[in-house]
Amino acid sequence: MKIESLKIENVGGISSLSIEKFDPKLNIICGENGIGKTNILDSIAHCFSQLSNFILKRKSNCVNGYITIVCDFNRIEPYTCLIESFEPRDYNQNPYDFRSKLLANFDSNYSNLIYFKTERLFSHKWISSLEIYDEVENHLKNLDGVSIQLAKDWFIKNELLSSQPYTNDNDKNSIELAKKAFGILNKSYSFSALKQDMEIYINTPTGIIPYEYLSSGFKTCITIVWGIIREVQVRFPDIFVKDFNGVVLIDEIELHLHPEWQGKICNALTTLFPNIQFIISTHSPHVIQTAEANEVIALSRKNGHLEKRTLDIAPYGFKGWTVEEILTDVMGMRDTRTEWFRSKQKEFDNALDANDVLNANKIFNELRLKLHPSSTDLALSRFQLDMLNGRYK
């Protein structure tokens, strides 16, 4: 399954949005805070959800909201989800239930979507007895996101069973792929062993440690990689995860990642899972810096109406762009400098125009202390000051 286009009308804070074409492999949604990136992911998940208590709301003061999705299996009859205005009389009443109609329309394709929300960290968990039964229904709550509650039990169970002759090849391959999660962004880390104390140990440059004591960046990667593998294994036990041809949504993919890792995460995921269509949101220029032109969905907004901006300035992608160029031309930042710098630069220019040597020297000394030693702005200011001081005639 691949999502091909999306249209949203009066849902959440979005009055209208039309994305005519998604890339079949990777889609990076970016835009300012509050523009609706998470709302877009929620809207997609809403159309592929079952057994969830989460209810997406239509926009305030609107009669109804609509989400229309075209996938590679419903091109002729796109599915439109109605978000009604009816309000429940009490908290236990579902104000609308479209899921029976949804499942009849989409058949079993709701199983092909996996959603990662922003909660990806975990703490140490003592294992006294394994919870080994995963109910399929518990893995279809796409609006709630992938649960990490039994991830450790899942890994231990599969590692223990991997050496047994009756374990099928799919499960063996899945646990081997899960072990790679520890080193996908830093090869100096790797799986060490599962010991009798039921702890998962990891080789690190400073020694062997339980996996829960890895950094938050490692935990984020583990949650995503293990989550995909586990969801596919539970939902489709006869399919090897690398053959899974579905959709994965990830909200704010850069969370807890060092900028260097932000620039690696998309390539790592698309390499590990070559048949998955990823639709992610981000605030990170380092994530966008690794993208092809057709993989970036840069949003702009006017009165609640969103549109995908045309990025004709980058027909061959962003892999040669600087972070500053992406921040200004893709992400819409007015200036990458701080307000303090802009204010001081204006004061310095005014002093130059007024031939105020004393004040110009004072402001330059402030700039010299706070700008990077190799700054071209500092070099230019020094030259201008020398001209004002009469050192060049």
Rank of each mutant, 00 (worst) to 15 (best):
F364I: 00
V241C: 07
T206Y: 14
A45Q: 01
V70F: 02
E77I: 13
F191S: 05
T118K: 11
L185C: 05
A193W: 06
I28W: 01
R337I: 07
K219T: 06
D386A: 04
H46F: 09
K7H: 15
T290I: 03
D42F: 07
L385S: 03
G320F: 04
S375E: 05
T167G: 13
S111K: 07
I55G: 12
Q345W: 10
Y166T: 14
P24D: 13
S381N: 11
T220A: 15
E307S: 15
L299K: 08
K302S: 12
I326P: 05
Q345I: 10
V287D: 02
K308C: 13
L17T: 11
S215T: 14
N359C: 02
N275G: 05
D90W: 13
I313F: 15
F98D: 15
K59D: 00
E325M: 15
F54W: 10
E325V: 11
A181H: 06
E366V: 04
V287A: 04
H46M: 12
L177M: 04
M1L: 12
L102P: 03
P165M: 12
P373D: 11
A45C: 01
C71D: 03
I297A: 01
G246T: 05
D144H: 04
R368Q: 08
D335K: 12
I184S: 02
I3L: 08
W261S: 07
T376D: 14
T336R: 11
S163Y: 08
T270P: 08
I297S: 00
G217C: 05
N245V: 12
M331Y: 06
H46V: 07
L269E: 01
V63M: 12
A354L: 11
T322P: 09
A314H: 02
L160S: 11
D97E: 15
I313P: 10
